[in-house]
Write a protein that binds this DNA or RNA. Structure first.
Length: 198
DNA sequence: CGCCAGATCCACT
DNA sequence: GTGGATCTGGCGG
């Protein structure tokens, strides 16, 4: 297993979202590996996508999305939650993949302790804010390069998934985002995997 | 079970 | 001042 490289991330966002399924997200914390297989992800694509943070143009908050593919875009929301995204496409085009759920693999006891509430394995990383809590991902990791071999956050390749085991549907939590963006089937998940958020 | 409100704070208007 | 790419517990059916 080794770090995915820049070329893996330099592709259309929906393709990247599909390709990330089955890969392993790894967090190095105090010399320990915390890791899980990505089983759910969503695409947010450009300034035209009215569900994407870049819909208002470039701001200090969303600037990382305009950067190199393979950067981590980590933002704070709802007054208490951190979200992890992987920047996609190409430099200056603002797009990213939201990591929504992991199947926990390594450092499970440690991840359990990081969660504010006691929870079962099935609910440990089954949501975008749950997994950042479990892996201790916050503002300190915003803008880090997932391709950096010296870094504390990266992604490793997994066994390729057959197309038939990938399902897709509308994105979650978009509130009153107008159509057609509200219904764009830009959420992808591993069919039948119990660690998916919904 | 499903539905709903409260938590909590920062970026942008 | 407003509202959000969420989570959780409480309440009603």
């Amino acid at each position: 297993m080794t770090h995915l490289t820049r070329s893996f991330y330099t592709k259309p966002t929906r393709q990247l979202a599909r390709d990330l399924l089955g890969c392993t997200l790894v967090r190095r914390l105090n010399g320990q590996r915390l890791a899980g297989i990505i089983v759910e992800a969503e695409a947010y694509i450009g300034e035209d996508d009215l569900a994407c943070h870049a819909r208002v143009g470039r701001t200090p908050r969303n600037a990382v999305m305009y950067g190199k593919p393979g950067l981590a875009y980590v933002y704070f929301t709802y007054g208490m939650h951190w979200m992890l995204n992987v920047v996609s496409e190409g430099e200056e085009f603002p797009a990213a993949v939201l990591i929504r759920a992991l199947e926990p693999v390594e450092g499970i006891d440690q991840m359990m302790q990081h969660r504010a509430r006691r929870c079962a394995l099935i609910g440990l990383c089954s949501g975008p804010a749950k997994l950042t809590q479990a892996l201790r991902i916050d503002r300190a990791l915003n803008g880090v390069d997932l391709c950096n071999r010296q870094g504390d956050l990266w992604i490793e390749a997994g066994d390729p998934l057959p197309a038939r085991s990938i399902q897709h549907g509308p994105r979650v939590g978009l509130g009153d985002t107008p159509e057609p963006w509200l219904s764009k089937p830009w959420r992808f998940w591993v069919k039948g995997n119990p660690f998916v958020s919904k």
